[in-house]
């Protein structure tokens, strides 16, 4: 009996002492450490996206088949590229615009919501070209970033400084304040300038750019030609606010990526509008006395911060013919 008691006591003592041997489990961490880099995309991620995009584009370019633009290229980019493939199919048709795969800057947002944007500025394709500004959109977490548009930089224009991956650029809305004008208002004013011409009251609100100069020059020439044929030339310019995206710049300004639809109607009173041979593949319908040239442009507009002395202006824009119809 005594031995049993001693044995039990000894064993219990040992176990009791052992319970004090092991430290308690650590206290849980209740507060998450701060993210080191808050941008939605780090450099490695954006590099992967750009690389996949360029691979898909190269494959489609090789086949001149826009149907191959599926995962990484979408929206207006497909529409524009398809038109370029169509134009290229004509004899002596223009080759599709070269989109350089090498980037000199990539800007990601730090947004927590969707859609999100990714912008880049490429190296110039050649000595005669300016860098290309490209825009990717991710609609939701389960879809890939897609290249939705591009525009060549306006000669002499400067892309403002953007936030890096530590915080990411701010994803702004079209009604964001704190700017010289809200993005929506700035776009509206600029399109009004395009409609009215250089004499517009909004001309002073924007720095000079070659995009509108060429548009006005073309309008003047075609208007004169139409007038000679007792016809008419009318530009109809519309914005697409739903597809407009805004990224904040490092100095509190904004970079607005605004798709713009331009319809240039050329009519003659008696006669037939003759379409240039290189543009024939884009003709949709029977062109007689009216030809409507449809363009899908991308305008990249810089809006300075409200307290800035700078002037808003277009830093990149492309005028992309996508179709010619008879009405």
């Amino acid at each position: 009996m005594n031995r049993r008691i001693i044995a039990i006591g000894t064993g219990a003592s040992a176990l009791l002492m052992l319970t004090g041997c092991v430290a308690d489990v650590p206290e849980p961490v209740t507060e998450a450490p701060a993210l080191e880099q808050e941008a939605a995309l780090l450099e490695a991620q954006s590099d992967r996206i750009v690389e996949a995009t360029m691979a898909e584009l190269a494959l489609a370019d090789e086949e001149a088949d826009a149907d191959l633009l599926t995962d990484r290229i979408g929206g207006d980019a497909v529409t524009v590229r398809k038109a370029q493939y169509t134009l290229a199919s004509a004899d002596d048709g223009p080759t599709p615009v070269v989109l350089p795969a090498e980037m000199q800057a990539v800007y990601s947002v730090g947004a927590d919501t969707w859609p999100r944007t990714l912008a880049s500025v490429s190296q110039p394709a050649d000595e005669d070209s300016t860098p290309v500004v490209m825009l990717w959109i991710q609609d939701d977490v389960d879809t890939d970033y897609q290249l939705r548009g591009w525009a060549h930089m306006i000669p002499g224009a400067t892309i403002p400084a953007m936030a890096g991956t530590t915080s990411g650029a701010e994803q702004l809305t079209v009604d964001a304040d704190g700017l010289l004008a809200t993005p929506e208002e700035a776009i509206s004013n600029y399109l009004e300038l395009l409609r009215e011409g250089e004499d517009s009251e909004f001309a002073e609100q924007f720095t000079a750019d070659s995009y509108r100069e060429q548009l006005f020059a073309s309008r003047e020439a075609l208007t004169e030609t139409a007038n000679d044929a007792e016809g008419e030339y009318v530009d109809t310019i519309e914005s697409d606010i739903d597809s407009t995206y805004v990224m904040g710049t490092a100095d509190g300004g904004a970079l607005v990526f605004a798709p713009v639809s331009v319809k240039s109607s050329f009519s003659v009173d008696d006669g037939i509008v003759e379409i240039a041979g290189a543009q024939q593949p884009l003709v949709d319908g029977d062109i007689e006395d009216v030809a409507v040239y449809e363009y899908r442009d991308l305008i990249v507009l810089h809006i300075p911060a409200a307290d800035s002395d700078d002037t808003a202006g277009v830093v990149a824009a492309d005028h992309n013919l996508i179709r010619i119809t008879d009405s």
Binding site: V78, D240, D242
Partner: peptide
């Protein structure tokens, strides 16, 4: 629970242009 945030494109679009159809599902 996500914090309520405003949609980036809440304003009505004056555009009469239909947006391009989405790309086919992969």
């Amino acid at each position: 629970e996500p914090e309520p945030t405003a949609s980036p494109t809440t304003s009505a679009s004056p555009s009469a242009e239909a947006s391009p159809s989405p790309s086919p599902s992969p």
